[in-house]
Simulated scan of single mutants.
Amino acid sequence: MSAAPVAPQAESAEHHGSGPELGLLLVPPRARTGWRVVPARVLAMCTVELQKLRHDRTELYTRAVQPALWLLIFGETFTRLKAIPTGGIPYLDYLAPGIIAQSAMFIAIFYGIMIIWERDSGVLTKLLVTPTPRAALVTGKAFAAGVKAVVQAAVVVLLAAVLGVGMTANPLRLLGVAVAVVLGSAFFSCLSMTIAGIVLTRDRLMGIGQAITMPLFFGSNALYPVDLMPGWLRAVSRANPLSYQVDALRGLLIGTPSHLGLDFGVLALSTAAGITAASALLGRLAR
């Protein structure tokens, strides 16, 4: 009975005295081609970012403190005061989607610090000399921020449910919530990386990040209806992507009137613009 033919790669592995496991290391995997290249590299970058979270979950726990305080103290107090008209909706219910958007933004807005740290440690230079497009690097990091924000949003939703907030349990609506959180976080992380590409240092980025987070938050509809705002603040709110994210979350979670098509359109365009701007400035960090 004749022996079965042996593949050249296996013969090479046996010739070098390695087993079948090491043989896999000697044979490079088949390279992806065509349209699959960029999505594969985006997924790889996103996975690398999330591996950091698996090794250190402290960030998730500490980030949950602030939204909990907003709901427990601010939300409960203003629900009793009835100082902000919300169309018959309990203020805590009205506030919860805004706090989800706020906590996601606070995670993403300092994401540029990580890019600067990677520049200082030499990691960014190594990434930029690979064939991976810069847009894929930025997109992977942006959507990793989005996944972190979804985990944070789940914590806020559970806390709000414990406090008696009436939220939907419809799986399709919850999927829409996840998409809105990912898109909003991706935009704000790209904004942070864009600022990092301009200022180039962590200290400057921290100062600018702290200077813009609260105006973005208070200049949105997260805490109060747009109708209560003065005219100039309404104009700011219309230009603020956070307002569209909050509107989408509010409509999906508690069923208030919303403009989901417009909301998701603005979030998607903002994210695309953010990826483009951050990609264009990424090389400036490595100089």
Results as ranks from 00 to 15, higher is better:
D263P: 04
H259N: 14
S270V: 07
G112T: 07
G251A: 12
C190D: 02
L69H: 07
K82S: 15
Q210E: 08
T213K: 02
D56N: 14
P215L: 00
A10Q: 13
A101F: 00
M45K: 10
I109M: 12
N240T: 07
L200H: 12
D203W: 10
T125L: 14
A10W: 08
F143Y: 05
S103I: 06
R54I: 06
D203V: 11
F187D: 00
W70T: 01
S237R: 06
S2C: 11
D247V: 11
R134Q: 11
V123H: 12
K141C: 07
Q152E: 13
L172M: 07
I84D: 06
K52A: 13
E14F: 15
G75S: 03
L50F: 10
F143T: 01
S121G: 09
A83F: 13
A68H: 03
G75D: 01
L282G: 05
E14A: 15
A161C: 11
G251R: 09
L267Y: 02
M105S: 09
A44K: 10
R54L: 12
L183G: 00
S220A: 06
L22M: 15
F217E: 00
I107L: 12
G88Q: 06
I116A: 03
R41S: 12
A10Y: 08
M45W: 09
A273D: 04
V138E: 06
S192K: 06
Q102K: 08
A154W: 06
